[in-house]
Structures are given as C-alpha cells and as structure tokens.
C-alpha cells in the first residue's frame, strides 16, 4: 500500500499488533527501513528499529515508591487501564515490587485510562472500604477522576494518589507540594517523534540506529517536578 509511493522508511505505531504484522512484514521485505513504536509486532525481527517506553519500569518505579512510603499492613487500591499487554506489564511489575512488603491490595479495577470511569470506580471503592491509605491510579486521567471522588467523600486527609504519565495539571500540583499528590511516574509522551528523528538520522547519516531504543520512566517528586512541567502541552 504505502510502499507503492516510493518511501525509504516507515515509522509505524501498530495500534493492534496482530493485524498489522503481515502488512508491515511485506513492506520490510521490499528492503524498506521499518521503525516500530510503542507496541511490538507479533513476529520478531521484522523491524530495523524498535522505540518504546518502559512499561515494566513504569510499574516497578511506582511500586517501589509505595514500598518506601507505606508501612506493613497499609491498604491500597489499584486502577488498571484498558485491558492490553501494556497494562498487564505495568501491573505485573507493580505487584512484583510490592511482594513481601506486607502492603494489602484491597482490589484492582479497570478505570480504562478514563476520568469518568475512574470517578465511578473510586466512588464505589470509597463506599466499600473504610480504610484506604493510598491509591495507585497508574495514569493521570484516572488520577483526576480518583481525586474528584475522594474530594466528594471528604476523605482527602486519609490517602494519597500516584498517577502516571505526567499530565501538566498533576505535575503542577506535585511541584507545589500538594500532600495528596506526592509523586508521579513519567512515560515518554513523544516516542513517535523520537522514532521519526532516529529514523531520519539513520537515512541521512552513517550513524547506526538499528536495534532497540527503550526510553526509561522516571520518578517525579516535588524536587524535580519543574523539569517535567510543560506549559504548552495539550496533555
């Protein structure tokens, strides 16, 4: 398809891995450079370059923060995203980091990376559990919904919330020392531009760019939040 237009390289984010694997493979077989972003293809070795965020690291960093800042016997609830391998990797790494810490996960439910869904789920968590010490919202859109539900129940003093991905509104509140939002975990928002730049670099220069390029997640706290605040970001 695209290959008929005489391209030299293809940068693709396979929204669904399975159906895109063979078309991308066909492109690669014509000798065209292929860069895959964020979600892998189901057959290995097709792409020349793979650029992605570190989903396991994303969950692990958050989990380690909970272990350091909570005590044995403390209770948390967990919000999951849309059921995908990304979500599974994050949650698996998070629960692995919590192993042996004595922190209880009261329940995990899907907030689908959506504010409204998370608001509803958090309302129900608050009705159900009298004692919640912290929430891993795992995403800042979900954190917004969670925070609104906590405010409605007037239980802001009981628990803190860790989201993820670094929405500017949340990062701003972390920077300002909001006790409800002590930390966040970054997830590279501009992977596709990194992928495009690397691909272009590979085309115009002799720089070797093939292989795997994993952009790490970082823990954002009030101390370093300023570096992660981007006024003009739409997110």
């Amino acid at each position: 398809m695209v290959a008929t237009r005489g391209i030299d390289a293809l940068v693709v984010l396979p929204f669904e891995s399975e159906p895109l694997t063979s078309p991308v493979q066909a492109v690669a077989e014509q000798g065209i450079w292929v860069t895959v972003v964020d979600r892998g293809l189901t057959v290995e070795g097709i792409e020349d370059l793979y650029v992605a965020g570190d989903n396991s690291g994303f969950g692990q960093l958050a989990g380690e923060y909970f272990v350091e800042n909570l005590d044995e016997g403390d209770n948390i609830v967990v919000f999951r995203g849309i059921p995908t391998t990304i979500d599974n990797e994050r949650v698996d790494a998070f629960t692995a980091a919590l192993d042996g810490s004595g922190i209880n996960i009261l329940d995990m439910q899907h907030g689908n990376w959506n504010r409204d869904d998370s608001f509803t789920v958090m309302q129900d968590f608050l009705s159900r559990f009298d004692d919640i010490d912290a929430v891993w919202a795992s995403d800042d859109d979900m954190a917004i919904g969670v925070l609104a539900a906590i405010e409605q129940a007037d239980r802001q003093d009981e628990m803190w919330v860790v989201g993820g991905a670094g929405m500017k509104e949340i990062i701003g509140r972390i920077r300002d020392g909001d006790p409800q939002l002590p930390a966040n975990v970054s997830y590279p928002p501009a992977q596709i531009s990194t992928a495009i730049e690397l691909t272009a670099l590979g085309l115009v220069s002799d720089t070797p760019v093939s292989g795997r390029f994993i952009i790490g997640s970082q823990l954002i706290t009030p101390e370093n939040a300023e570096q992660f605040y981007f006024e003009d970001s739409p997110f």
Binding site: N114, R115, D116, F119, D141, I144, G145, A148
Partner: peptide, 12 residues
Amino acid sequence: PRLGSASGNTGV
C-alpha cells in the same frame, strides 16, 4: 461541573 473537563473520550 463534575470533573470540569472534556476530551475525545467524553461520552463514549
């Protein structure tokens, strides 16, 4: 007034 926001995911 509930969450004070709208996006492409609102009302799906």
